[in-house]
């Protein structure tokens, strides 16, 4: 290890003060990110764990049984696995064409619309949801699948538009022109050149939308509960009604799709072929 460190220092690397700060930063990150996860992991398997003890006094799988055998939790998992993909799908259908338009066309009010998309994120969520709820009552959307989907899609509009718009804009026009020149129709240019090249960016947006939808609790609780309980909304009742350990188990379950998704998408996102293969002066 030292052998690899020494030559790096010789190349007039960062001074000791900087190294110390970086080290401190990494340590803090570890404590704040890994720490809670460790706590969750331990809790999920502990019989009881109280303050002065460094580790739980005894271990058990009981909480997992409780969670996995609970009917309402199973339904919540099902609901989450329905709403999140549906949200991504519908949000893509709505937002990707908009993103393409923002990237490729100059139209009246373009900037205003683009900035306006942030409005959904600019106000306190709860206030927004309360107003939406009164609107939904009037439209008979309370406790409906449509209502919950609308809430979820609202939360994804910003990244489903902004990130793909940037990805579309990064596709050089000459690559699209070359495809037209080769004889491709406008649609074919889109499917053969523009979409594949913008794909990494679109994928990022889709993953973020999936996670946002998967984690959405406030609006879903307001609009969907008690008919449509998703995993995060079920969390609320769990935290309130069960011992800590059940919440820990549930958190871990809640994290599984996110981690799985990130791992699967990682390869495509890190591929970065957007910058390859064409020369720009």
């Amino acid at each position: 290890m030292t052998a690899t460190v020494t030559p790096r220092r010789r190349k007039s690397g960062p001074g000791p003060a900087v190294m110390l700060l970086v080290g401190l930063f990494v340590l803090l990150m570890t404590i704040f990110i890994i720490g809670p996860l460790v706590w969750l992991g331990l809790h999920a398997f502990s019989e009881s764990w109280s303050y002065p003890n460094l580790l739980p006094s005894s271990w058990t799988m009981r909480w997992w049984q409780v969670v996995l055998s609970d009917k309402s939790l199973g339904v919540a998992v099902q609901n989450s696995l329905f709403f999140a993909p549906m949200t991504v799908l519908l949000s893509s259908i709505i937002c990707l064409p908009a993103a393409y338009a923002f990237a490729r066309h100059e139209f009246w009010g373009r900037r205003t619309f683009l900035i306006g998309l942030f409005a959904t994120n600019a106000f306190p969520k709860m206030g927004l949801f309360v107003t939406i709820a009164s609107l939904f009552y009037a439209l008979n959307l309370m406790n409906t699948i449509t209502g919950v989907l609308i809430i979820h899609i609202l939360g994804t509009v910003v990244f489903m538009t902004w990130i793909p718009a940037a990805a579309f804009a990064a596709v050089p026009r000459s690559l699209e022109e070359a495809a037209r020149d080769a004889g491709a129709s406008k649609l074919r240019v889109l499917t053969s050149v523009t979409l594949p090249m913008a794909f990494p960016g679109i994928l990022v947006a889709m993953v973020m939308s999936f996670l946002a939808s998967f984690d959405e609790a406030q609006g879903t609780y307001l609009v969907g509960a008690p008919v449509f309980m998703t995993m995060p909304t079920q969390m609320y009742s769990l935290v309130l009604n069960y011992p800590n350990q059940v919440a820990a188990v549930f958190s871990i379950l809640l994290a599984i799709p996110s981690v799985a998704l990130m791992t699967a998408a990682h390869k495509h996102i890190a591929g970065g072929h957007l910058a390859e293969g064409f020369q720009i002066k």
Partner: peptide, 28 residues
């Protein structure tokens, strides 16, 4: 452009980076 009997070589070559050389040439 797609209906004209002309073919163009672009200043920046405009090769499609997500396709191999073969696929680039085979695309038309």
């Amino acid at each position: 452009a797609e209906k004209r009997p002309s073919a163009m070589v672009f200043q920046n070559y405009a090769l499609w980076p997500h396709m191999t050389v073969f696929k680039n040439v085979a695309f038309p």
